[in-house]
Nucleic acid binder design. Structure first.
Lengths: 340, 340
DNA sequence: TTGAAAGCGCTAACAT
DNA sequence: ATGTTAGCGCTTTCAA
C-alpha cells in the first residue's frame, strides 16, 4: 500500500510537507499542495488511521458504543445523536458490540486506541461499580439506562433515561383505570438487575397501589427482547395456563406485537377480549392492526440531551447529572374499558 | 495510560518479554509469565490496538461492513455470519457506516488499518467498476447484492444474493395467478441502479409475460425503505388517486406493513379488498395481523455461504463465484383469489 | 529464557 | 515554505 513516504518521494518533497497537506495546514505553497493532492489521487493513497491515532494525543471524536445489534428502539436514537454530534462539529464513531462483552472494557480500549474525547454508552448494564467505571478516563454518558442497581455516586456519572419503574407503573395504571384487575405482564426477566426488572417492579407497584394482589401465574418471562417466536410461545403458554386475565402489560413494543398475534391465534381479540399496553413507542407500532397503545420514549429530546451532555462535559467540564425523561402515552387501538 | 513499557519496568523485565507473555508465546518461564500477568491486572493494562495493528503484517480478522443502520433484514444475517466466522476460528469485526459514505473506500481504509484478511460487504451498491473494486486488496464478498448494474467480470468478484428481478416476478405472478390484473407496486425508487430498480423490473416482466399493460399510475415510489410514515403517505396517495387496483406488490416487508395500515385506514381490508405480497421474510411479518404473504430470503443459508465463501477465498485462494439463492413463498393471510 | 534494537506510518516539534 | 528528526506503543528479528 501507498504510504506517506511514497507520496513524498513521488513528489520530491519531505514527508512532513505531505503530512501538512494531508492535514490542511496553512503554511504550504499552493503549488506543492496541488502536487501532493494529485499524487494522493494517482497513487490511491489512503491514510493509515492506526499510525495517526498512535501519534496523536487527541482527536475530535466521540464514540457511540452500542450493545446489542437489533434493538429497533436504538435505531432512531442513534440517528438523532449522530446528527447533533456532527452538527456541533465533532466526529461521531459508531461501534457495535455483542451483548456478551463488557462495554466498559471495550470503551476503555477504544478511548485509548482512537484517542476519543468522549463516549456515549447505549444499552449498557445498570449496575456498575466505581472501580469498573474508573476504567473510562474520558467523559461519558449512559444513554437510556442509569445506575439503579449499581453503587456509583450521582456526581460520578451522567445518564439520560426514562424512569422505567415509573413508566411501567403508569402503563399498568392505565389498564387499572379502565377497570382491569387481572393484568398479566410479559417481560424478559424479573430479576436481571436490568430494565426488565425495573419495569417488573413498576408493574407490582401499580398493582399494590390499587389493592390488587400480585399473582405469579400472571407473570410470563420470555428470556428475550427480540426473538418473536419465543415471545409468541411464552404468551401462548400464559393463555393456556390462565384464562382469567383481561389485559397484558408488555415491557416492550415488539413483545406486545407478538403477544397480540398469540392472543388472536387463541381466539382472543385485541382489544375486545384483551387489552394490551407496552413501553417504547416504536414507529412500527403505529402501523400495526390494531395500532399499539404504548408509552413513547421522547427519542428526539433524549438523543439531543445525550449529545448536549457529552459535549458539555467535554467543553466545559460540566457537572455530571442524571436526566430523567417522561414517557407519553400514545393512544392506540389495543386497549378498551373492561365491561362490568 | 499504562503501556507495555510501564509493565516492563514494573516487573523488571524487558519490553519484549512482556510482549511475549501478552501474545502467549511459549518460551517464557512460568515465573515471569505470572509476574507479568499480575502486573497487567494491577496496573489495569489495556493493549493499544493501533500500535499493534501498525506493526503487525497480518491478523485473523474478517470485517463485516454494514451500510445502513436500520435494515431489519440485516440483523439476522449478521448473527448467522458472526456465528460461522467465529466458529471457523476467525475474528469478526462488525463495522457500521452511513449510507452517505462509499463502502469501498471505507473497506480499503479498514483493510489497511486493521490488517484485515477479508471483507464482507453488506448493503453495498450494485454498480462497481473494476477501478473502484481495485481499491480492495483483500478477498471480499458482496452479501445480498451483486453487480447487475456494474461492469465487473464474473471472475473478479464474489457475491451471495437472491435474484431480485426473478423474485419480484414470482411475487407478482402469484398475484396474477389469483386473478389480479390491476396490481400496484410499492417501491423505493424505479431507477436507482439498485435493488428497487431490479424488483421494479421484475414487476414489469411479470405483467408483460401475462399480457397485462404496465400502468405508470400504479407505481408508488416512497423514496425510503424504512420511514414508515412516508410509506404510509405514499400508499395513501396511491389509494386516493387510483381506486381500481386489487393488489399491491411491496418490494419490502416493512413497506407492506405500512401499506396494509394505509389500506385499512381507507376502508380497504386486506386481503378482502386488496391483496398484498412482499419480499424479505422478516420474522416480524409472521406476527402481524394479517400475517404477511412474503418471499422469504433463506437468511441462514445465505449467511453460511457468505462466511464459507470468504474463508475459502482466504484459505484456498478459491475462485470468485456468484451465488444466487431462491426465495421461498411464505403463505400468509394477506392475499386471496380475486372474485370474478 | 531473556534483552536490545529496528521499524510499522504518521504527526509535531524544531531547524532552516 | 520546507526539511529533519524524535517518538507514539507495539511486535519481531537477532544476539546473548
Amino acid at each position: 500500500m501507498t504510504n506517506i513516504k511514497d507520496l513524498a518521494q513521488h513528489c520530491g518533497v519531505a514527508i512532513s510537507t505531505v503530512s501538512r497537506v494531508l492535514n490542511d495546514h496553512p503554511d504550504v505553497s499552493e503549488e506543492t499542495r496541488e502536487k501532493v493532492l494529485r499524487a494522493v489521487r494517482e497513487l490511491h493513497y489512503i491514510p493509515n488511521t492506526s499510525a495517526r491515532n498512535l501519534v496523536r494525543t487527541t482527536s475530535d471524536t466521540i464514540a457511540l458504543l452500542v450493545k446489542g445489534v437489533n434493538n429497533p428502539f436504538f435505531a432512531k436514537l442513534i440517528k438523532v445523536i449522530e446528527r447533533e454530534i456532527t452538527k456541533q462539529g465533532y466526529t461521531l464513531e459508531l461501534h457495535h458490540m455483542d451483548t456478551s462483552v463488557d462495554e466498559l472494557h471495550v470503551g476503555a480500549q477504544l478511548a485509548n486506541d482512537r484517542k476519543l474525547i468522549g463516549i456515549l454508552f447505549l444499552g449498557g448494564r445498570f449496575n456498575y461499580s466505581p472501580e469498573e467505571l474508573a476504567l473510562i478516563n474520558v467523559p461519558s454518558v449512559f444513554c437510556t439506562y442509569t445506575n439503579t442497581f449499581g453503587n456509583l455516586n450521582d456526581s460520578d456519572y451522567s445518564s439520560v433515561a426514562i424512569d422505567d419503574k415509573q413508566a411501567a407503573r403508569f402503563a399498568v395504571e392505565t389498564l387499572v383505570n379502565l377497570g382491569h384487575r387481572r393484568i398479566a405482564i410479559l417481560t424478559d426477566n424479573d430479576d436481571d438487575n436490568s430494565i426488565s426488572e425495573l419495569r417488573f417492579q413498576g408493574y407490582k407497584d401499580a398493582l399494590n397501589a390499587h389493592g390488587i394482589a400480585f399473582d405469579p401465574s400472571l407473570v410470563a418471562c420470555t428470556g428475550t427482547f427480540s426473538d418473536m417466536g419465543a415471545i409468541y410461545r411464552t404468551t401462548s403458554d400464559l393463555i393456556e395456563r390462565d384464562n382469567s386475565f383481561t389485559a397484558i402489560f408488555a415491557i416492550a413494543d415488539l413483545m406486545a406485537i407478538a403477544a397480540i398475534k398469540a392472543l388472536s391465534d387463541h381466539g382472543k381479540r385485541v382489544p375486545d377480549d384483551c387489552s394490551v399496553v407496552a413501553i417504547d413507542g416504536l414507529e412500527l407500532s403505529e402501523y400495526t392492526l390494531p395500532t399499539l397503545t404504548t408509552l413513547v420514549q421522547p427519542v428526539e429530546e433524549m438523543g439531543l440531551t445525550c449529545a448536549k451532555t457529552i459535549i458539555d462535559l467535554i467543553e466545559s467540564h460540566g457537572e455530571n447529572k442524571q436526566y430523567t425523561f417522561e414517557t407519553v402515552l400514545r393512544p392506540g387501538g389495543s386497549i378498551r374499558r373492561l365491561d362490568k
